[in-house]
C-alpha cells in the first residue's frame, strides 16, 4: 500500500515497529550520561537546548497536541473503520484526550494564562477510509505524544504539574501500546520511553495544522 505516510522516513517511525532497532547501549548510555552529569553537579544538557517559556507555555504546547490527538482519534472513532473491541478501545482513548484537554485548559486558566484555541487540522486524503492507514497514522501521533511529554519532564517547574503531566504521560504510553497492538506493530519498541524536543514535535505536526 502506498498510502501517503505523514511521518514516513521521519524520526518518529524509527522505533515504531522494529524491535531489532532497540539498542540497549543507546538508551543505557543516556542514563549513564545523566548520572555522570549529576555526579559532577552539571546541569542537564536538555535545559539549555530549548528556550524557556515556563509551565504555561508547556501546558499550551501539551494542549495543542491533545487537541490534535483528540481530533484524529475522534474522527477515527466516528468513521466506522474500527468495530467491536478495537472501536471500543479507540473511543476510550478519544475520551481520555477529551479529559486531558479539559484538565489542561482549566489549569492554564487557574495559573492566569490563556489556553490556546483548537487549531483546524487536516490529514492525508483517505486516511479515514483505510483502517491500516488510520492505525499507522494514529500510532505515529500516539508515539509522538508520548515523546513530547517525556521531552518536557526536565522543563516543568512546579512539582504538582510534573506529577499531573506524568500521570497523563503514563496513559499516553498505554494508548501507544494499544494502538501499536491494533496495527500489528510492536507495542514495546524500547525499554524506556524516548523523548522529543518541542521544536521537533511541532515541526512534525505542522503539516497537519491548517489554520
Amino acid at each position: 500500500m502506498t498510502q501517503p505516510r505523514p511521518f514516513g522516513g521521519g524520526p518518529v517511525m524509527m522505533f515504531a515497529d522494529d524491535r531489532s532497532r532497540r539498542s540497549f547501549l543507546k538508551w543505557a548510555g543516556l542514563l549513564g550520561v545523566g548520572a555522570t552529569l549529576a555526579a559532577a553537579g552539571a546541569r542537564s544538557r536538555f535545559a539549555s537546548a530549548q528556550g524557556d517559556e515556563g509551565d504555561i507555555g508547556i501546558l499550551n504546547y501539551a494542549l495543542t497536541l491533545e487537541y490534535l490527538e483528540e481530533d484524529f482519534y475522534g474522527r477515527g472513532a466516528d468513521s466506522g473503520l474500527l468495530t467491536g473491541r478495537a472501536g471500543e478501545l479507540v473511543a476510550a482513548i478519544r475520551d481520555h484526550e477529551t479529559e486531558h484537554i479539559a484538565a489542561i485548559e482549566s489549569t492554564i486558566s487557574d495559573l492566569g494564562g490563556s489556553p490556546v484555541k483548537k487549531p483546524k487540522f487536516s490529514y492525508p486524503q483517505g486516511v479515514f477510509k483505510d483502517k491500516q492507514a488510520w492505525l499507522e497514522t494514529a500510532l505515529d501521533f500516539s508515539q509522538l505524544g508520548v515523546m513530547a511529554y517525556h521531552g518536557q519532564v526536565q522543563r516543568i517547574q512546579s512539582p504538582e504539574l510534573l506529577g499531573a503531566a506524568a500521570s497523563i504521560a503514563g496513559v499516553e504510553s498505554r494508548h501507544a501500546a494499544i494502538i501499536a497492538r491494533l496495527s500489528g506493530r510492536n507495542p514495546f519498541p524500547a525499554p524506556i520511553e524516548q523523548s522529543a524536543s518541542k521544536s521537533r514535535v511541532l515541526k512534525t505536526v505542522q503539516p497537519f495544522v491548517s489554520g
Binding site: 542514563l31 526536565q154 504510553s173 501500546a177 524506556i192
Partner: peptide
Amino acid sequence: KEILQAAAGIYGTEERHAA
C-alpha cells in the same frame, strides 16, 4: 532531573506492559 527523566521513561514502559 536526569534520573527523573529515566524513571519517567521506565514508568511509561511498565504502563505499556500493563495495557
